[in-house]
Design a binder for these strands. Structure first.
Lengths: 186, 186, 186, 186
DNA sequence: GATGAATGAGACTTCATTCAT
DNA sequence: TATGAATGAAGTCTCATTCAT
């Protein structure tokens, strides 16, 4: 593994393990066996480093949500599959979830970064768009619809992670059904 | 204004103006004309001070969302009114919105604080609960339903505030309709 | 109990329980149910308050060491009794011991306070002086002799308290014998 | 001098000049021309820095007490030499003496640090141990015997430093004789 | 006598970042 | 490429003490 990769890998480990706020550069330096200067050789700033990781996690998440999407399912079933995938990713990776959420709302985030990351969701976006075109989904701005759907799942996931409610298969299905009802054409 | 009130007021101003992370004690000290020790006389820690403010803002928000609720409206109309109120509060107070969101997800927050603040939403909770009882709304855990509805509105509000989409009366109505569809009994 | 007594009592409790360094005024204020101003009404400063307590403990210690001294014992036996008393007082009151030691070496201490406290040891001083006069003890400055003897016992006590050596009756006797041999006329 | 040495040197100077309690980090920073961060680069905490200095002074003291020990002297004469050395070190370096005493009794001190420092006294320990083996000294725990002997000298030294008694060659000899009598086999 | 709100200097430490090597 | 010593502003908080009531 190259030094640059070591740095990225260690940062990812630390940030998904300790969370966004509890990961100072000093720890990254230690864990990656890289000198401070080396990190700043590859990354302009801590922000830049975190940006990269944010993209990595977004990509991972992007892949996770479309898992098994190519199965022979109808549109609604695919919708449910994606939501299930998202829920699984979040609850199976609570620290990644936390980082993604923290960072998404962080004042640090750059619009351009957000733009770039959109490509990881192209398939998901395409899926929603096709739903509109075939008359299954309402005519809402694409990006808004995605945010609403994903927001619902992430809201539910957080409650599960924080143990504010009991996780059951049935409840999850009800929540996804809610999401579906909120975007499907009556 | 008493010293304690000065401190709270100044902190509120600063935190809603600069955001959660950009408000160090030193600034609060300057703005409130209080000595450091004075702040720690009234509040156990910075966290304690912020907790108090969080509660204050939650209370303000709690009042905002039930504005005009006693009008002669039917259930669905009241639902729309509450969502409208929430949206207005968020978009008219973007910094308060930011603080509330940041802090709600902050690792600093205490469960007990959350519990206490629940009372500010009693009317809203009661409204939802009654909706379930009269057969208008689905049987989902109360706290989950609130989170989903409010989550939708806050997700939409954030996009407006961040200028990711254009705010129109029509779009707002569509979003609220989505929320309604997600919890109403088909 | 008068307010002044409450203050003294609470300070004593705190200082013998928490030790010299872990007892700020704020704690004394809380425990004594007295206002800060009240303490400064009775005592010029924290130092003054501690001085008073130091004297109290010194007096208690002074009484402890001459316990049972009036028994029909010969000179050497009385010497051993005093040393035993001192050892018991130290090891049975390790926190008082700690405070006494800390404070005795503290730069805060005033010569005058030391002078005043000397009266609590008048009996012990007299006992040593008489030992010199009757030819049992060497001709060393009285205050030096006391310090050496008490220093030995306190050194031994500290090792017991810190569990650096095992306490046995036999070892204690050997240590006292050492002290005796160091001052007795061969 | 390297930065680390500058820091250590300045701290030593300050601490032996001002005493243990009157030496805040800010002064060390100023005197050593090092940034705060630099100090924490080399030392985990203030305590760690002080630990190091304590060890340094203990080492210096360890060397001082065995000065000229290799002369052709008999056992008792060597004993007197060591005690004389110790007395000289204390009275010629009253501030170091004060720091050593303060710190030795400080609650901050770690047992492990004490253990490590024991090696600086190996020669002295060996000397005492050999005394026991050749039948000159009593059978007391080694560490206790050292403490008692050194305690006596340090007690005497303090009285000299605080000007509680007049220093004379004769008195010093009497005190060492006392120590000798307290451990020698009659 | 008694209160306790108010003081503010100063305590230790952390942090992202730089730069000479 | 890679190092890591050095930076120093800024962070939160504690403390003995004062003074108007």
């Amino acid at each position: 593994m190259s030094k640059r990769e070591q740095i990225l890998y260690s940062t990812l480990e630390l940030i998904t393990e300790l969370g966004f706020h509890a990961t100072p550069m000093s720890l990254i330096i230690k864990k990656s066996n890289a000198a401070a200067g080396t990190i700043y050789h590859y990354f302009k700033s801590k922000e830049d480093l975190i940006d990269t990781l944010y993209s990595d996690l977004k990509e991972e998440m992007g892949k996770a949500i479309i898992q098994n999407l190519d199965l022979e399912l109808n549109y609604k079933e695919k919708f449910f599959l994606i939501c299930n995938n998202l829920f699984s990713f979040f609850t199976e990776n609570p620290k990644k979830f936390e980082f993604l959420e923290d960072y998404a709302n962080s004042p640090l985030i750059h619009k351009e970064i957000k733009e770039i990351n959109r490509r990881h969701y192209q398939q998901a976006l395409d899926f929603i768009e096709s739903g509109i075109q075939i008359g299954m989904l309402r005519e809402l701005p694409l990006i808004l619809m995605i945010n609403l759907i994903f927001g619902n799942i992430s809201c539910f996931s957080r409650m599960i992670i924080l143990e504010e409610i009991e996780p059951t298969e049935e409840l999850l299905n009800k929540v996804i059904q809610s999401s579906w009802d909120s975007v499907k054409i009556n």
